[in-house]
Design a protein around this nucleic acid. Structure first.
Lengths: 108, 108
DNA sequence: AACACTACTACGCATCGCACAGTACTGTCG
DNA sequence: CGACAGTACTGTGCGATGCGTAGTAGTGTT
């Protein structure tokens, strides 16, 4: 099956979600998402999403040179990002319940 | 906001769902989906999805010439389609609860 | 020296919903 | 009766986005 299509438009939400508590860098965000159950998420998708959110002004970023490996580009959610997160969450919930409704009718 | 991306990979499921009870033609399926809450679904999307599902062997079709308007191309779900519906529904439920989980963690 | 792991970037592809335009038929209203 | 709205379908092309793949670069392990 193709779970990748289901991520469309939702990966933004998921990334914002895992960043809400603590700042994170790309590789770390990937791990958090997978730990959260999104096992199939591609790393390139996450890096791309981070850049998109950053360009959209929802994240700030700062580089931390690591002494044990390559540098890490940390991303931090700002107010715009939080607003977007709240908004997207509502959109998601509404959409999910609508679809569940359609599926329920079928089962009945 | 952009609800259209959320439909990705789910419109198939929704279309199969509304066809499960009764056969339907394109224009009618659009109405059923909108009545079910998917207000923003585009008609071209539905027609395209119907054709895709048909080509994938999940629907059969027959034309009914209407005496009051253009002909209607009815689509009927078959066994393959039903199997796909059940499968996709499970995929959806699993995915949705995973994402809800990620959002819950955030709220906590 | 070879390999694995971490960490990021960049290119190009595939999917899929959608806007738009076009065809065609029916009924209604001025 | 002519213009318009509603019904019903088809086809073209676009845009957003997740992903595969490759490349770069640093560190540690065997």
């Amino acid at each position: 099956m193709d779970t990748s299509q289901l991520l469309k438009g939702v990966l933004d939400l998921a990334v914002l979600a895992v960043l809400r508590k603590d700042d994170g860098y790309g590789y770390d965000v990937v791990r958090r998402l997978r730990a959260g159950g999104l096992n199939d998420v591609g790393d390139a998708s996450v890096y791309g999403t981070l850049r998109r959110l950053y360009n959209a002004g929802m994240l700030t970023s700062y580089v931390v040179p690591s002494e044990e490996g390559p540098h890490r580009k940390y991303y931090s959610i700002n107010e715009t990002g939080r607003a977007r997160l709240a908004e997207s969450r509502e959109t998601w919930r509404s959409f999910a319940s609508t679809l569940d409704g359609l599926l329920e009718e079928v089962a009945a």
